[in-house]
């Protein structure tokens, strides 16, 4: 039973005082992601055939595909990184990066795009799928 004169935490507190702290100085020091971590969906517009399967299976309704307008878009703030779209994609256009998205503020949205929204267009049927210059794409950000 508890003895009123023992404070077991005193020793721990004193030992911690000389031991190395457990915290990391984020954001100056970032722990690398684990190999299998699910971070962020990456899209390769060159192989997509607009079959819309990813949109139909997305439980969060984060992916929108329009076959007529040739648009593929994803709301990263809705995406729950469940990996289902990657699993169902027959063309392997989708992949899961183990790097999480960088934090964004509303000011980070480019050209009227909402932060976290990414959109790819195929401008004309003959182009091989360069990302639309207006859209906020990973390429545009880099």
């Amino acid at each position: 039973m508890a003895n009123p004169l023992t404070l077991p935490m005193v020793r721990r507190s004193l030992r911690n005082l000389v031991a190395r702290p457990a915290t990391r100085k984020y954001p100056y020091e970032i722990r690398p992601s684990f190999g299998g971590a699910r971070g962020k969906i990456e899209f390769d517009v060159t192989t997509c055939n607009y079959c819309m399967l990813c949109m139909r299976r997305c439980p969060a309704e984060a992916i929108r595909v329009s076959r007529e307008d040739r648009i593929w878009s994803i709301e990263h703030l809705r995406c729950i990184a469940c990996n289902v779209c990657v699993e169902v994609c027959s063309k392997k256009s989708l992949s899961m990066s183990n790097q999480p998205r960088k934090p964004q503020t509303p000011a980070d949205g480019v050209d009227g795009q909402r932060p976290g929204h990414e959109e790819w267009h195929l401008a004309a049927p003959d182009t091989t799928g360069a990302p639309c210059p207006d859209a906020e794409t990973p390429a545009a950000k880099a």
Binding site: F34, G35, G36, A37, R38, I80, A81, C82, N83, E87, M96
Partner: peptide, 24 residues
């Protein structure tokens, strides 16, 4: 949580269960 992230890919929401088994 690190163990979870390594083995399932997610720290909190793991999404490894599928009907009929597990994904990883």
């Amino acid at each position: 949580l690190d163990i979870f992230e390594k083995t399932t890919g997610g720290r909190v929401i793991h999404s490894v269960n599928r009907i009929g088994g597990v994904k990883r």
